[in-house]
């Protein structure tokens, strides 16, 4: 593979994408009342984190300070934990649906007393 000299992209550009994903994820978690919708919001937020980690450790990004391996390994951990989290959340959603016949989180207020 040819490796031409590349202009580095400033870290701020990557972080800006991360900001947008984070904000949309938070908004999604607030605005959606559907359990799956909230899960999707969480995935967006986690992806914002992974982008930042990958960008901060990349040799192709100006201003990145982490050694190349660390950021990638942490991002790997984030992805794996996100997969685990999605599986658990989905199991909870199915159980919730079994109990309430809906996955609207506003209906899950039985513990409120």
């Amino acid at each position: 593979m040819i490796d031409p000299p590349l202009t580095q992209i400033p870290l701020a550009a990557y972080l800006l994408v991360g900001v947008v994903l984070f904000v949309t994820g938070i908004t999604c978690m607030i605005a959606k009342r559907n359990l799956i919708g909230i899960l999707i919001g969480i995935e967006l937020v986690l992806n914002a984190g992974t982008i930042n980690l990958a960008a901060m450790s990349s040799p192709f990004v100006a201003g990145s300070s982490l050694p190349p391996l660390d950021g990638q390994i942490f991002a790997l951990f984030v992805i794996l934990l996100a997969a685990a989290e999605a599986a658990a959340a989905l199991a909870i959603a199915l159980t919730f649906y079994g109990g309430y016949a809906t996955i609207d989180v506003d209906h899950g207020d039985r513990l409120k007393g």
């Binding site: 992209i9 990557y14 994408v17 992974t50 982008i51 990958a54 960008a55 450790s57 990349s58 040799p59 192709f60 990004v61 190349p68 950021g71 990638q72 991002a75 790997l76 992805i79």
Partner: peptide
């Protein structure tokens, strides 16, 4: 795609 662009192919 952004990961690929940042050189993190495996990621």
């Amino acid at each position: 795609g952004l990961f690929f662009l940042a050189g993190a192919y495996f990621l």
